[in-house]
Amino acid sequence: MAVDEKVIQNGILGMGLRGDPKTGILRGFGVILAINSVDYLVERELDFIRAFPEAERMAENALVDAAQWCANATFGGMMKSPEWAGLIAPMVSSKRDTIEALHAVQNTLGWGRVIGYELDEKNTTYTMRVQHSYYIEPYLGRHGRSERPRCYMWLGVAAGNMDLVFGTKVHSFEGQEVKCETMGDNVCEFRVKQKRSLFDLM
């Protein structure tokens, strides 16, 4: 049985995702969700980076790190949840299925759309392509074209997807955003590979 994105999407959105009318808390898939303003998500990150003009890379890494942990804990938690067992697990029987199921879930969250990927299981590399990433519109609208890639959350999630698919600990994989719509590309592209251990370098 192949992964059916539409079934997953309808299943998730059909859960009527909103905060509980009494507590205002939304628990599902083993996590606590909130519906955040995209402008808020993007501007807080850009402002954080702007605070460190001499150390932009360090600030960017802190954002990617948060997203990679998020991917591991959130989607790792989701994969153990009763909702996943009932709705998604019956469609999944390989690493490729797992990554497609993760894409299907990620495509329901308002983050933009994963439109393609390549997974090389032997060499443990992965390329993921996204359009309409939620960074693009706010970035281009307020800051104009960027000279560097900006989709920090997606980069962490791409590497996190590989941590999950290969069942390794968090940060076993690392990635790079090699194309970004904020730079004028027509797609955002993320390339992920396994981190080299000290042993590999000897």
């Binding site: 606590i32 909130a34 519906i35 402008d39 802190a62 954002l63 959130t74 969250l109 939620y134």
Partner: peptide
């Protein structure tokens, strides 16, 4: 496009893991 809107604004689901990590990393740095 996988774009979610409410009240005329774009929104996105994020979880406690992401938002508390972002909070912690921003405060720590």
């Amino acid at each position: 496009k996988s774009v979610l809107t409410i009240g005329g604004s774009n929104v996105a689901f994020h979880c406690d893991k992401f938002n508390t990590r972002i909070l912690k990393n921003i405060e720590d740095v």
